[in-house]
Amino acid sequence: MAVAALALEDITVTFVSQDGARYTALRNTTLRIAPGEFVSVVGPTGCGKSTLLNVAVGLLQPSAGRIRVFDEPLAGLNRKAGYLFQTEALMPWRTALQNVTAGLEFRKTDPSQAARQAGNWLQRVGLGGFGERYPHQLSGGMRKRVALAQTLILDPQIILMDEPFSALDIQTRQLMENELLELWSANRKSVVFITHDLEEAISLSDRVVVLSAGPEAHPIGEFDIDLPRPRDVAEIRLAPRFIELHTLIWRAMKNEVLKSYARQQKQ
């Protein structure tokens, strides 16, 4: 097998709270992403999906296990990765344009060149005339686009996305998913896409990984998605093969979702 863009090997993450209580979010999780591959990770709520991404980007040190980025062990933050957060991550005191230039500014790129590039990126995400707006003057979908441009302008080799579209309404969401696919296929990077929405996972990905219910979540199934590209996320949901895959993966997921639900009821 070729060198993986991102390899999480045998990762275990145990949180210890101040009163000594231990919670193992992930146990012995192994995940490899090839260069240019689009992988979705699905699982019931609270199964440690976000923990997995935080480990991959270097925000969180795993209790055990190794992380390799293009075969280099990861130390500190993952400099090859971009991260799209589930919640608002834009700096509210910067305009859309200034938010997009932030990464270049931190890297001391020439300001006029940075502004030109950012202008281009805003246009690519469909926000050409909105550079001077502040985040609070933009809608939720527009803010997500700004965040996407903010991440992609740095041309990361690996893009990590933590339920980035979960707060959007269904129409905006499908628009964003199609745009994401378009941007991705123009310049294929490795993507790890976290979601709890199985349809979203299948319609976007090359491969879907199913995590078990937490605590001690671990992958319980992997499915190659052999749907043809380019795809339209709204149309592909009607394809017979899509429905077959959905049934197959849902069968694997169902027990875990029920387990997770039962545990939440007990609490």
Binding site: V57, L59, A81, G82, Y83, A89, P92, G103, E105, F106
Partner: peptide, 29 residues
């Protein structure tokens, strides 16, 4: 906000840049 801070770090901000571009603007409000 933890997310804003983490995002700035991932975008490549050094500790000094975090101070100037995240902590100070947030404190100024």
């Amino acid at each position: 906000s933890y997310t804003v801070l983490a995002n700035a770090r991932i975008l490549g901000a050094s500790e000094r840049q975090l101070l100037r571009h995240v902590y100070v603007p947030s404190a100024m409000s």
